[in-house]
Amino acid sequence: MHTTMTSLLAADSPAVMTPTTPHLRINTVTKRFGSFTALDGISLTINEGEFVCFLGPSGCGKTTLLRTIAGLTKQTTGTLIQRGNDISALPTQARDFGIVFQSYALFPNLTVFNNVAYGLRNRRVDRAHIHARVAELLALVNLTGSETKYPAALSGGQQQRVALARALATEPGLLLLDEPLSALDARVRGHLRSQIKALQARLGVTTIMVTHDQEEALTMADRIVVMNHGVIEQVGTPAEIYHQPASAFVASFIGSMNFLDVTVQGSTQALVGSTPCACLPHTLASGQAAQLAIRPETVALSRDGGALKGEVVGIEFLGPFQRVTLHLTEADQTLIADVPSRDSSDLDLYVGQTLAIHLPAEAARLYPAGSSHQ
């Protein structure tokens, strides 16, 4: 997954959105369940037409935030403003959104046509418009011809596309996706996420998706909201989140990351054992214990030269690259380097080999000691 993410970010990451009119403003929203705080003063603005992913581990608050936006969960304090209207106290049915759950939640006793038409019938839309709208939506999700089938006759991916069509039927201003792909197998999931992203871009509907899958967020989102313990750790484009993590938690949660125990030595340098290594500017105090974070694909190895040395203790062939595990004898720590397969022959890699290690300063970030283990 690591290399896939890197290549996607380098070549196919979503374009950065230009500032537009806010669709939704979340102002200092807090949600408590008894003594447990699920959301702690969340503030966030989501723009018109934007695709935003709430990303984080289980229990971080991302689903609670989505349910609060939908009115399925009532916030303890704070406000929600949608297109200038305060929806904080509105009941669920009065809010302008469509929602798709991971469990599809289709009516098993209704045909595909009637599932998609359900919301339109509740709004007493005339029959001709319902038929036209359902036909249009089934064409959008590539299910024309499935109108008379029942959900049990459809695959998981097809059922999820019906659920998506149903959510879009009433032309909601906001589309909410609650881990919509997590119940599908990997091949279907990969195909459907590209379909959903293309459909969202075509329709221009403002979309919020909850996911715990970092690759899903990196490939689909215009912006990612990384959450942990009920707070927002960072908001940014996929490239910003990956290349410029604002905290050690974000650095450890997104992709693969090395963390080395170091001692701060000046504003752009740290000691790995007794070996000085340059890093990006930081505000930690000299002499302070810290963690140096660096991604495996940025670590450079050579057969000679360099002050930092490591012994090769493991080699994994992973197709486009080889993952090399090194033991830093002086610092008694482990470091992983991803070496492109086309370059590995120059190193003549073997277990027991001692190699020189170069950590590019522009890729090395310092965080307070222990902060990656939140």
Rank of each mutant, 00 (worst) to 15 (best):
L181V: 04
S182V: 01
A183C: 02
A183E: 01
A183G: 10
A183L: 03
L184P: 14
D185Y: 03
D185E: 10
D185G: 10
A186I: 14
A186M: 14
A186L: 15
A186G: 11
R187I: 12
R187L: 14
R187M: 10
R189L: 09
R189G: 00
R189M: 07
R189K: 13
R189Y: 08
R189W: 09
G190I: 13
G190P: 09
L192S: 00
L192T: 03
R193W: 12
R193I: 08
S194C: 13
S194E: 14
S194F: 13
S194P: 12
I196M: 00
K197G: 04
K197Y: 01
A198D: 01
L199G: 09
Q200T: 04
A201W: 02
A201G: 13
A201L: 15
R202L: 09
L203E: 00
G204A: 11
V205P: 00
V205F: 03
T206H: 06
T207H: 11
I208W: 01
I208P: 13
I208Q: 02
I208Y: 04
M209E: 05
V210Y: 06
V210W: 03
V210Q: 05
V210P: 10
V210R: 05
V210M: 07
T211I: 01
T211S: 03
H212W: 11
D213N: 03
D213W: 08
Q214I: 04
E215A: 15
